[in-house]
């Protein structure tokens, strides 16, 4: 009895050490990254990584495939850009407005979408997000095809000048780390456990007495709010908000990032986002359309490695040795 307990303890200890080392190395790399790469490029990756991680909270941990997350990403970008530019509010408040706006939008879209399951859920989110796209196309404050241009980055807390790209980078990095920490906290809380039980077996979760609908809606709103955080920050990084971020292609892109990195892994979407953004930047200079490549990567992912890069690593011999065993069903 004591022996097995002892063994279990050892089993538990080594992965924690390995994971902490990985986490530390990753953070150091992110802190040093602006020395080697173009800051705006890095910030773009971080924004999309947070977006994908927030999306993964829903797909990977609750088992809901939303095909409409662009509405929250692009919507928050519009809200933040509008209040910062037109009303002159400070950046931190502007981002907060984006987050709250995305959460409200998430509550409305989620309210309708959770009435159906599986494949229908995906189609409903897609349709409602498209409706929001048409709204953005016609609404006055979004300036239609032009979008909201030259949004000032302003001063964070009144004294940190965000127009300097180094300052902006560390601000984005801080937001990213906080966002990931929130997601980590959610999925490791009792609430997160119930989400996972819904993912594994919804009927059983209902029969155990959980009001699955409320949990789904809560997860949807949280995911939308965190997506809004990413969208709001992105609007400040690029200093504009356009229709591109609310279109269905964007919803597809975040699915690809998550799938490529590893559905249901905490940091997989970071790798997926990094790869997709790098690929897009690389192809942007050539005439070759990005959609062909993203489409092919999509098909290859679904057919050949559904666990994604990080998921495959966790399941590899090395990953298992380091205690990263990945238990997501495929």
């Amino acid at each position: 009895m004591t022996l097995t307990l002892e063994l279990e303890k050892q089993k538990e200890r080594s992965p924690v050490v390995a994971q902490t080392i990985f986490l530390g190395v990753g953070l150091v790399l992110l802190l040093l990254a602006p020395l080697f790469f173009y800051p705006v490029f890095l910030m773009k990756i971080l924004c999309f990584a947070l977006f994908a991680c927030a999306f993964n909270l829903l797909l990977g941990y609750t088992g809901l495939l939303s095909f409409g997350h662009a509405a929250f990403f692009g919507g928050a970008a519009y809200f933040t850009a509008h209040v910062v530019k037109e009303w002159g509010v400070p950046p931190e408040l502007g981002i907060l407005v984006g987050v709250v706006g995305a959460a409200l939008l998430g509550a409305v879209i989620g309210f309708f979408a959770i009435r159906r399951q599986g494949i229908y859920f995906a189609m409903i989110t897609l349709a409602l997000a498209q409706m929001f796209y048409f709204f953005c196309l016609q609404a006055e404050f979004t300036h239609g095809e032009d979008g909201i241009q030259s949004v000032p980055r302003g001063h964070l807390f009144g004294f940190i000048d965000l127009s300097q790209s180094t300052n902006m980078y560390y601000f984005v990095l801080a937001v990213f780390v906080i966002g990931i920490a929130i997601i980590w906290r959610i999925i490791n809380s009792p609430f997160g456990m119930i989400l996972k039980s819904i993912r594994e077996n919804e009927t059983r979760a209902i029969s155990l007495g959980y009001s699955v609908r409320n949990y789904k809606l809560a997860a949807f709103v949280m995911s939308a709010a965190l997506t809004g955080l990413a969208g709001g920050v992105k609007a400040l990084v690029f200093q504009f908000a356009t229709l591109t971020d609310v279109g269905w292609q964007m919803s597809g892109e975040v699915i690809l990032m998550t799938l490529l990195g590893g559905i249901g892994t905490l940091i997989g979407p970071l790798f997926g986002a990094g790869l997709v953004v790098t690929l897009e930047n690389y192809l942007a200079t050539s005439e070759f359309p990005v959609t062909i490549v993203t489409g092919l990567v999509f098909m290859a992912c679904v057919l050949l490695f559904r666990r994604g890069i990080v998921g495959e690593f966790y399941n590899s011999r090395l990953g298992r040795k380091l205690g990263f065993e990945h238990r997501h069903k495929h």
């Binding site: 799938l259 993203t294 489409g295 092919l296 990567v297 999509f298 992912c301």
Partner: peptide, 10 residues
């Protein structure tokens, strides 16, 4: 759904 989405994009 995801596979056919990729197919459509391609």
């Amino acid at each position: 759904l995801l596979f056919t989405f990729g197919l459509a994009l391609t």
